[in-house]
């Protein structure tokens, strides 16, 4: 995969983002390569501290890479100045978890949505701008008169619709959705997921969908990448990742997701990981998951496994990948043949 491949919209190439802190260097993203292809939804899952949000921010160059490359729309933007990046940010837009925090409380909804139109000179006149704002509101299912209202007058779901409209304003090639439904009520989450999928279908949008809700990611994504401690540990299509997870971390993560069925919950065997995610200041040697991995063996402490193919379009970074089968997706029972790795 390279930037020459026409269908790649944005790409991280062996990206590292390290932050100096008094406690040492936090390796938030530590060698991540991923390419988002035009028209797809790439789901990026992981727990807090996995680096998934930092990877998303890197695509907008909202954090500075320590090493590696960031390519957007065919251009290597790794070293671009802030000034030059302005234009890039038209190509990649972002929707944040908390629309309350990402919208200016003192500006009307219309002004917030119009801002990218002004910055990127996308409207020739005030009238054209107003018409475009009304059009964008309509796209996200809000009435045109919402333009005159303030964020606090809206519900959480409506505010997130405004966040989406604002992201659409620059006609971006890629929209990074960072936990877009996490702070919404359950009954509203489905509305926003439907909206995002309809917009994608109608406008040919490309999404990087960053979330910790595995059921939502399964529903939304064409491909999935699982992150752990600054690395991608597994990537593949959802039916492979959810039914045949190859990395023990993915298997454990899936087995931890509670299912809204009391009978399934009573019968399922959960892989309960011991301990906490290690500090990204001092990640374990070899495989980063080995300190919590139920299948870890001595070799895991010595070799840092690279992503390798375990099936069609399905890669895992594990010396002893699982070849077991789960019973189903997040919504179904979950068992893994953990001991299958022993024969690998």
């Amino acid at each position: 995969m390279s930037a020459d491949t026409p269908d790649v919209v944005a790409e991280l190439d062996d990206l590292k983002v390290h932050f100096p802190t008094p406690a040492g260097t936090v390796r938030a993203v530590d060698g991540v390569s991923l390419a988002v292809r035009r028209g797809e939804t790439l789901g990026l899952v992981g727990e807090s501290g996995s680096g998934k949000s930092t990877a998303g921010l890197a695509l907008l160059r909202l954090v500075d890479p320590t090493a590696g490359r960031v390519r957007v729309a065919g251009a290597d933007v790794t070293l671009w100045s802030r000034r030059r990046l302005r234009a890039t940010r038209r190509h990649v837009a972002m929707v944040f978890q908390d629309p309350q925090a990402s919208l200016d409380p003192r500006r009307t909804v219309g002004d917030s949505i119009a801002e990218p139109l002004i910055v990127h000179r996308l409207a020739a006149s005030t009238a054209a701008r107003r018409a475009r704002v009304a059009e964008l509101l309509d796209l996200v299912g809000l009435r045109a008169d919402t333009a005159g209202r303030y964020p606090h007058e809206l519900s959480g779901g409506q505010r997130q619709r405004v966040g989406v409209a604002r992201a659409l304003a620059g006609e971006p090639d890629l929209i990074v959705l960072d936990e877009p439904i996490a702070s919404l009520d359950l009954s509203v989450q489905a509305q926003i997921m439907n909206l995002l999928r309809h917009l994608q279908r109608d406008l040919g949008l490309t999404y990087l969908f960053i979330a910790h809700d595995l059921a939502a990611v399964e529903h939304m994504s064409d491909r999935i990448a699982v992150m752990y401690l600054g690395r991608i540990v597994e990537t593949g299509p959802p039916e492979r990742i959810y039914r045949h997870p190859a990395h023990p971390y993915t298997a454990a993560l899936l087995s931890a997701v509670p299912v809204a069925d009391p009978r399934v919950e009573r019968e399922r065997r959960r892989i309960v990981l011991t301990g906490d995610i290690p500090s990204p200041v001092d990640p374990p040697s070899g495989c980063r998951f080995r300190t919590r991995c139920p299948q870890a063996r001595p070799a895991c402490a010595e070799t840092d496994p690279a992503l390798a193919e375990v099936g069609p379009g399905h890669d895992a970074a594990c010396l002893f990948p699982l070849d077991g089968e789960r019973d189903g997706g997040v919504g179904e029972g979950a068992t893994t043949r953990a001991d299958a790795a022993g024969t690998a």
């Binding site: 439907n194 059921a215 399964e218």
Partner: peptide
């Protein structure tokens, strides 16, 4: 809730 057996369909919001 999303149902893996009905991927690709709209959620019943």
């Amino acid at each position: 809730r999303p149902d893996p057996s009905r991927r690709g369909e709209d959620l019943v919001a």
